[in-house]
């Protein structure tokens, strides 16, 4: 939240708390959306006329699934990049300085980079099934 400085000698770098939390949880939220929407589209699409729509060789369901994947992937990638940026900003040149190590926000940004990367990977893997069901459920 609006964290106050821990290491007092350092100049306090402002990071908006929304940015900070998004950097940690953005990937996770994107993944959640990806799974729920993918499931919803499949559950709904596979019993509706949507599955029979054929557009450039792909069913309506497949198109929607691809759209969902691209959108959520974009969110996950954005969160990873933001986490990376926050981490660089907070650490600055003094990567090893003790005050940086004591700042919980550095830890959050660091986790954000790792979590974001993992969730990007998971979303990509989770999109693999779409390739097997391009024309039908």
């Amino acid at each position: 939240m609006d964290a106050s400085p821990v290491g007092e000698n350092r100049e306090y770098i402002q990071v908006h708390r929304f940015q900070l939390w998004f950097s940690v949880l953005g990937g996770a939220v994107a993944w959640t959306l990806h799974l729920l929407l993918s499931y919803g589209v499949a559950e709904f699409g596979c019993v509706s006329p949507f599955r029979t729509i054929d557009w450039i060789g792909l069913s309506g369901v497949a198109w929607l699934e691809i759209l969902v994947t691209l959108l959520t992937l974009a969110v996950a990638v954005a969160s990873t990049l933001i986490a990376l940026r926050i981490k660089r900003r907070l650490l600055g040149d003094a990567a090893a300085s003790s005050s940086a190590a004591s700042d919980g926000r550095v830890f959050m940004a660091r986790s954000g980079v790792m979590a974001g990367a993992i969730f990007v990977f998971i979303i990509v893997v989770e999109a693999l099934p779409i390739l097997y069901f391009l024309r039908d459920c």
Partner: peptide, 20 residues
């Protein structure tokens, strides 16, 4: 008897949790 497409999403997610 859920659609195989839905099942496959959950299969992928189930495999990925093994990474953690």
């Amino acid at each position: 008897g859920l659609p195989e497409l839905s099942l496959s999403f959950f299969a992928a997610a189930s495999l990925m949790i093994a990474l953690a």
